[in-house]
């Protein structure tokens, strides 16, 4: 069974082809992300500027490359198409949704619009198909900071989310105010790694008894400390990162104690942060700990294909129906609203 995934919810354009041969295992046959491909290969040398325009120009060449790389002779060989229909930037989402609808309509391959956060969670299933459930999953990126209890492939309970800024947004903005080069998050981590010890300390926000997060106050404190000359960029980066990760780990540990999951998952772009991975591995204790490989943590289409596959497999695999193309892009779509327990 062949599944095509399409993702355009934010900055990345991605197209992937997955193959299912049984059980929960999905083989990633191709998972192409526009920003990681040589521009001339994609656009013949011309690099388009920004945002939705970029998606618009990248999505068709990516589809063609995936087809070539996987020796697919005809799109009609597909069994399912999955596309991110939210949450995200509405203009960006629309590009992927329109491309997916057009392909579905032209080929009569069934289409499902899936939730981007659910996609991130499904990246853990791509990494470890038979991971023990329930899983507590921390989804952290530039746009999201969600703590989700995953009871099965379709039942998600959002235990906590950010009350203000996403953690990745905090990393990017603090990096900018410290004068660190782009990309902000990885460069902040690098700057922090040069510091062994500093007297500078930011108290982590305490959101108890909820499992929510807050990073805006920390961002303010870090920016102000730097302006007041209380530390070097490296020291401020270190103190900021330590405080942010402590808050994430503390809430995660509280949720583990209360909900007793069997697995701890970590996914989303910020999962690339080595200090966060170490902290979460420690928080996991005796639980299984799953972090997908970096390409599956960043925004990618393989995770979207996987989410579409599990939905379709467990909810009576759809045949093509034009009525199923009526869904729209949704810029706001909390993960628990995407929870669809198996009937």
């Amino acid at each position: 069974m062949l599944i095509l995934g399409i993702e355009t919810s934010c900055d990345e354009t991605s197209v992937a082809l997955l193959e299912h041969r049984g059980g929960n295992a999905l083989e990633v046959r191709a998972n192409l992300i526009a920003s990681q491909i040589e521009a001339h290969q994609l656009f013949g040398g011309v690099v388009p500027e920004i945002a939705s325009r970029k998606h618009l120009e990248a999505v068709n060449p990516l589809l063609r490359l995936v087809k070539e790389q996987t020796d697919l002779s005809d799109w009609r060989e597909l069994d399912l198409i999955g596309v991110t229909s939210g949450p995200g930037l509405s203009g960006a989402l629309l590009v992927g949704v329109a491309a997916a609808k057009a392909l579905s309509l032209a080929t009569r391959v069934p289409l499902r619009g899936v939730n981007h956060i659910k996609g991130h969670i499904c990246s853990t299933f791509l990494e470890r198909p038979d991971l023990p459930l329930p899983m507590l999953c921390l989804v952290v990126s530039g746009g999201h900071s969600d703590l989700v209890l995953v009871r099965d492939f379709h039942t998600f309970e959002r235990l906590g989310r950010t009350r203000d800024d996403a953690v990745g947004e905090g990393f990017d903005k603090v990096a900018r105010s410290l004068g660190l080069p782009l990309p902000g998050g990885p460069n902040l981590e690098r700057a922090a790694a040069t510091v062994q010890k500093t007297g500078l300390r930011f108290t982590p926000s305490n959101m108890e008894p909820s499992f929510d997060f807050s990073f805006s106050g920390l961002k303010t404190a870090a920016t102000q400390a730097f302006k007041k000359g209380q530390g070097s960029p490296q020291e401020v980066a270190y103190a900021f990162q330590t405080s942010a990760l402590t808050q994430l780990a503390r809430q995660t540990k509280r949720a583990i104690e209360q909900f007793q999951p069997r697995t701890l998952g970590l996914c989303g772009g910020v999962a690339a942060n080595g200090a966060l991975r170490a902290k979460m591995a420690e928080a996991a204790g005796d639980l299984e700990f799953v972090v997908p490989t970096p390409i599956l943590c960043t925004d990618n289409a393989a995770m979207i294909g996987a989410a579409a596959f599990f939905e379709a497999r467990d909810h009576e695999f759809p045949s093509f129906s034009i009525d199923d193309l009526g869904f729209e892009a949704r810029s706001v779509w909390p993960i628990d609203a995407a929870s669809q327990p198996v009937p």
Binding site: G142, G143, D164, S331
Partner: peptide
């Protein structure tokens, strides 16, 4: 509702 950062979605 909680007012969260619109940096990611641009408009809330």
């Amino acid at each position: 509702e909680d007012v969260t950062s619109p940096t990611f979605t641009l408009i809330l």
